[in-house]
Nucleic acid binder design. Structure first.
Lengths: 198, 198
DNA sequence: GTCTATAGGTTGATAGAC
DNA sequence: GTCTATCAACCTATAGAC
């Protein structure tokens, strides 16, 4: 793991990671070869190893950087003194913002976290998963307790419903095409809270 | 593509396809090797080619067989004279039944259809995708027209919401553990129609 | 920072014996 | 219906020249 010292090295590194992230997101981690990445970067595969230890190091850096940012935002919501409904809405919107700003990272996490999590070095993925569950369950329970959510909800099932509904949008949402991520978040929140019935 | 003539050949073929389906579902089509399949079946990789032309033939047979059954059920719902709300509910329930009865096939379709669809031989996957969209959009539009659904719904977004919400459950639902698929369908339908607000 | 060259392993698939 | 044996292509990663 070479330490970037100059500005050029840091930007080149970042550039290569962005290229890798796009390929990992499009084809999956295991189906993206180091040659794919090198080709897209206009260099040969061996040259990549001047910047990174291995293919795993690349996806590691991509995912851990992203998750640090995302969970910082969740923590801020949990710590706020908004009412439960507002917190839940904010959490949904933060997730759609992540899809807008980091679509590749979200896609990689959705598609490859289960596989990567089987390796020791990616143990933090499981921790983050548990942490995410804790965030949503806390918000749902607070909502039920304060009377803004139905009291007959199955909390675990509701958690899965919200989690899946939000993140799966990364499969079809394309920044700049069709509805904006804020419009989509509005409508998702509306369906989630009030349903589609007349 | 060897034609099965005897009963033994047909069952052996089915047995091998079941083994392949589980591996494709667990690890993805591209990350499952013919050796993985042969190992799980207790034979050597070369022997698989006595039964199938290629790895692609296997996944082709798995997916096309499943989709024929599934879309037969959708057609029956569309053709019925139930009201729009009942049809929508039935379509959701049929999808959860498919997850219960054919979890591997559903998972393969969810994870690998985009990739497989890029090959000519799997062109039918795109047709089926368009057909599925047509089914849901028809039901939603009928619901709006007959006044059982909100008339301010974005039909396309609602279609995606329902489709994603239903099928993504294949990621965590395990037959025989926790809630039954009918219980889950009940709660999903309830959230979808009425939301989670108190 | 990139290239040349290559090691060592895995891949899907085939030919022919049993 | 399965095995033995194998091929050509592809994989991640390394060593050292430029």
């Amino acid at each position: 793991m070479p330490e970037p010292t100059t500005v050029e090295a840091r930007t080149r590194r970042t550039e290569l990671l962005a290229i890798a992230a796009q390929l990992f997101a499009d084809k999956g981690f295991r189906n993206t070869t180091v040659r794919d990445i090198a080709d897209a970067a206009g260099i040969l595969s061996g040259s990549l190893y001047h910047h990174f230890d291995s293919k795993e190091s690349m996806v590691d850096e991509i995912l851990s950087t992203f998750q640090e940012e995302l969970f910082g935002q969740y923590d801020a919501i949990l710590a706020s003194d908004d009412d439960a409904r507002t917190k839940l809405e904010r959490a949904v919107r933060v997730s759609f913002e992540a899809i807008e700003n980091h679509p590749h990272e979200v896609a990689i996490y959705q598609n490859d976290a289960d596989f990567l999590g089987t390796f020791d070095r990616f143990g933090y993925l499981k921790d983050r998963n548990a942490q995410s569950r804790q965030v949503w369950v806390t918000l749902i329970e607070e909502g039920v307790r304060t009377g803004v959510l139905r009291d007959d909800l199955d909390v675990t099932l509701t958690y899965r419903f919200i989690r899946d509904t939000v993140w799966v949008a990364v499969r079809w949402y394309r920044p700049g095409r069709g509805l904006s991520h804020t419009d989509i978040a509005d409508q998702y929140v509306r369906i989630l809270l009030d349903g589609i019935s007349a």
